[in-house]
């Protein structure tokens, strides 16, 4: 049943096979394909000669260029460090005041700080440092642990409630859950705390509750948050009179905070980042606040 026939369109013969109507032409492989095949093979074989390619038992052909990806990367790291060394050295030695006053160093702080912040801190504090629920805003001048560059540097280095031996410790006790205050007292003191930042909340019908709350506050909370509730950076107790909140300033969240306590966790960076990087970040975070009056 093999009947070869001439295909009028291509001028080639068919092979004579037919499968359910499908036929095949006996066209020779076009010259272009063969040339292309040769070119790619020449490329490949050349590469085999100059580069490490073929296994030889426990070793491999090293290639004429004698390169190795590991060596290349190691060299690149050395070169890059050498390129950065001059300014890294200057930043490490300079005081914060000197850095802040030097436009060249501040430019490095801006670009490198932005990158370091984006890669390490933005997950919690957001890209612009403005924070989000449970993670504080770093641009609002309302500092939990202190807003000078040194204090910021210490926070970054040791973290808060972190695994670092010198970590800052932040403990807001769980007054409701641990039974130190009964639910009524929790509600009262929450109302008092709320009224500090919302004066118009103190309406005549609430004044009694707020006053009762104030009494609780003075005996139970003032030790950490201060008589005036303006906070204490020594123990990381935030100011409760302004309208900047870590966890949220609506009545419900304040009650949750007082009932269940809080223990913010900020990681330690002293092993993950170099001292120069931490210093750049501290300056960068400080300048975020300065730029945001």
């Amino acid at each position: 049943m093999s009947v070869e026939e001439l295909d009028p369109v291509s001028g080639h013969r068919t092979t004579g096979h037919v499968w359910n109507g499908i036929k095949e032409l006996d066209t020779p492989v076009p010259r272009g394909v063969l040339i292309f095949l040769i070119v790619t093979h020449i490329f490949a074989v050349t590469w085999w000669f100059v580069m490490p390619t073929w296994p030889l038992g426990t070793t491999y052909t090293k290639g004429l260029l004698d390169t190795d990806q590991r060596k290349i990367v190691e060299q690149k790291i050395v070169d890059a460090e050498a390129q950065r060394a001059p300014w890294v050295d200057r930043i490490e030695k300079a005081s914060f005041d000197e850095i802040l006053a030097d436009p060249k160093m501040m430019e490095i702080v801006k670009t490198t700080g932005h990158r370091l912040f984006g890669d390490n801190c933005a997950a919690c504090h957001r890209r612009d440092g403005k924070g989000r629920s449970n993670y504080p805003n770093l641009t609002d001048h309302d500092w939990i642990w202190g807003g000078g560059p040194e204090a910021i540097m210490q926070t970054i280095t040791t973290g808060v409630n972190s695994s670092n031996a010198k970590s800052r410790i932040s403990q807001m006790p769980a007054f409701g859950r641990d039974g130190m205050l009964d639910p009524g007292q929790v509600d009262n003191v929450a109302a008092y705390v709320y009224s500090l930042s919302h004066p118009d909340y103190s309406t005549p019908e609430r004044i009694k509750q707020i006053e009762a709350g104030r009494q609780v506050f003075l005996t139970t909370c003032a030790a950490c948050h201060g008589q005036d509730a303006k906070g204490n950076q020594e123990v990381g107790a935030p100011n409760l009179t302004d309208n900047y909140w870590i966890y949220g300033g609506d009545i419900g969240t304040i009650i949750t905070t007082i009932h269940g306590g809080r223990e913010g966790h900020m990681p330690t960076w002293d092993e993950r980042l170099t001292p120069a990087q931490i210093k750049i970040l501290a300056t960068y975070v400080y300048s975020l606040g300065v730029e945001n009056p």
């Binding site: 492989v29 394909v33 292309f36 095949l37 790619t40 093979h41 490329f43 490949a44 590469w47 085999w48 580069m51 490490p52 390619t53 073929w54 296994p55 491999y60 052909t61 390169t67 190795d68 990806q69 590991r70």
Partner: peptide, 21 residues
Amino acid sequence: PHWVQNLGMTFSVMLLVPSWA
């Protein structure tokens, strides 16, 4: 290892011809 990568790379280039065919 670098050599395994190179091997794969060169064969990928040669593979183009039958694919285009």
